[in-house]
Design a protein around this nucleic acid. Structure first.
Lengths: 145, 145
DNA sequence: GATTGACCTCAACTACACTTGAGGTTCTAG
DNA sequence: CTAGAACCTCAAGTGTAGTTGAGGTCAATC
């Protein structure tokens, strides 16, 4: 029978708050049908989509990037395993890069921070990429470098 | 002769903006002496301290945590290599944990996301720790789980 | 037919790490 | 001695990812 789901049901099954679902919808990450009484109704596939969004987040992908990726999914049909796989490949690369960066930082920290070189011009930790220039306003949430 | 440094000099040498130095001071991460004309003056050691702050940030440590760690440094004397080393050990552990988490996520992603299990109850990616409960308001900046 | 719970919108608040701007002061060089 | 650079404070804005609350509607139950 495959009933549609209400926001509350989706929230409970996916583990995200109702307010978050509203927020995702406002950001274009998910969509909903409306009933005659203006209430949201979702197909069961929404659960997969939300799961994918959460996994992307855990991988450090900003919501806007995930939204863009999801927008490339085919419009007409329900996305299949190959569609999701294509998305996952990009995240895998992103994750790899983040892991590599953190690992390099850790290794440098090991040999470097205790030695006293931290205040010197040449220290790889102090001045990772000669990055004296800024990159615009706002915080750097995902450690660059 | 070891002259003291002005904010502008510190900014140039450390690579952080003057506004950021003001911000760090407001947050208690650094301190400054004031001249008769109310301008900031720093000892050269400030550069090391700022370098340490930036390294901690790159390791994913929030400023508040770094501030607390720096507050444990001895008051009277200039911190030496052993002092910094003690700090670095904590960050090393934090980094290790972050790397481990990301690596686990990557490995799970490899075997999992393309297979279609993402919408199921049992999927380790979908429901990492049965974390249906919230942990309070605000964003989760540093991917938990 | 009223109550209750789930739902609706919209605005405002939270946290982090800063930046930007306004309006004013101090320092340095010509 | 004056122009301009560099400094000062304080308030408000930026971006991400949401949550919270006010004020109102919808739907099923008693």
């Amino acid at each position: 029978m495959q009933r549609e789901l209400s926001v509350g049901e989706v929230a409970e099954r996916s583990g995200v708050a109702v307010s978050t679902l509203h927020f995702y919808e406002a950001r274009g990450l998910i969509r909903s049908r409306r009933t005659a009484g203006n209430q949201r109704r979702y197909p069961r596939e929404i659960l997969r989509r939300i799961a994918v969004i959460r996994v992307a987040q855990r991988a450090g992908i900003p919501l806007a990037t995930t939204a863009a990726a999801l927008a490339t999914l085919p419009e007409g049909r329900t996305p299949d395993a190959r569609d999701w796989q294509a998305l996952s490949r990009a995240w895998r690369a992103n994750l790899d890069a983040r892991i590599t960066r953190l690992t390099r930082l850790r290794d440098q920290l090991d040999g470097c921070i205790g030695c006293g070189c931290l205040s010197m011009q040449a220290c790889p930790l102090r001045n990772p990429k000669d990055e004296l220039g800024a990159e615009g306003p706002g915080p750097r949430l995902l450690d660059p470098g």
